[in-house]
């Protein structure tokens, strides 16, 4: 039953992607200019060419490194402040306005300010931290608040020592919230970092090469890099789901 319905879903996904590619090809044929809208085939060959270029790894590597650095800073800050905010109403009340501001400010406003304040290389990292931190923070706070008091009372009654309480009661309880916080943070943060690169133009970066492709009207290259960014984003999402399945087996 389950496998037949997942087979059906795969068929639907294949049809959906085919329709998308067909519409794209149709639009490209209608436009009739490869400089404005290249078709899927032309884009695919451009993507394959990119993969063979000497600078490909440097470009992707720099963007990945910025993403990783921004994520690490956001995760450490979000985890530690989130735990503090989950345990203390005072800390959470203090953090609330910061988080609301970070979440409601248009990303581009932060980028424009960061361009004035930081070196080009650090702008995307800064933007990544600002977009990822609030997602992680909010999820950790919610996770800690979700820990069932009655279960904690039971564990205390049986004299479970603090280290085991943290390891066997609190951490497993907040794990699903950590995963969902990280998942939404990475989804948004990855895109924000690329936008940051477009505007700050570091020497290497996916955003940098997208911008120069746009300047020189190399639309096939621009879409090819977009495809690369999408594939990398999908790989992150897959890795997070994999970690979730390994960490959270009980659901």
């Amino acid at each position: 039953m389950k496998s037949s319905s997942s087979n059906k879903n795969i068929t639907i996904v294949v049809i959906s992607v085919t329709v998308l590619l067909a519409l794209w090809a149709l639009a490209a044929w209608k436009v009739g200019s490869e400089h404005i809208l290249p078709g899927p085939w032309k884009t695919l060959t451009a993507t394959v060419r990119l993969l063979g270029e000497a600078s490909f790894l440097a470009v992707v590597g720099h963007t990945l490194l910025r993403g990783l650095l921004g994520f690490a800073i956001a995760a450490v800050a979000g985890l530690s402040l989130g735990i503090a905010g989950g345990l203390s109403d005072g800390v959470n009340a203090f953090m609330r306005p910061w988080v609301v501001i970070m979440r409601s400010t248009p990303v581009v406003a932060f980028i424009l300010l960061a361009l004035i304040w930081f070196r080009n290389d650090s702008v995307p990292v800064f933007i990544g931290v600002l977009t990822m931190f609030p997602m992680i923070y909010i999820n950790i706070v919610d996770g800690i608040r979700s820990v069932d008091e009655k279960t904690v009372e039971m564990a205390r009654f049986y004299g479970i020592p603090r280290a085991r309480m943290v390891r066997e009661v609190y951490l497993p309880a907040i794990a699903p919230f950590v995963v969902s916080g990280i998942s939404s943070a990475v989804g948004i943060g990855w895109r924000a970092i690329v936008v940051g690169e477009v505007l700050s133009q570091p020497q290497y970066g996916i955003g940098t090469v997208m911008h120069s492709a746009q300047t020189f009207l190399q639309v096939d290259i621009l879409i090819a890099w977009t495809v690369v960014a999408i594939v990398l984003g999908a790989i992150f999402e897959w890795l997070i789901r994999l970690a979730e399945r390994l960490l959270i087996k009980w659901k």
């Binding site: 009655k150 009372e153 039971m154 066997e168 497993p172 309880a173 959270i248 087996k249 009980w250 659901k251």
Partner: peptide
């Protein structure tokens, strides 16, 4: 206890 209070994990 009145409720089972089992650890889901």
């Amino acid at each position: 206890f009145q409720e089972p209070r089992l650890l889901p994990w």
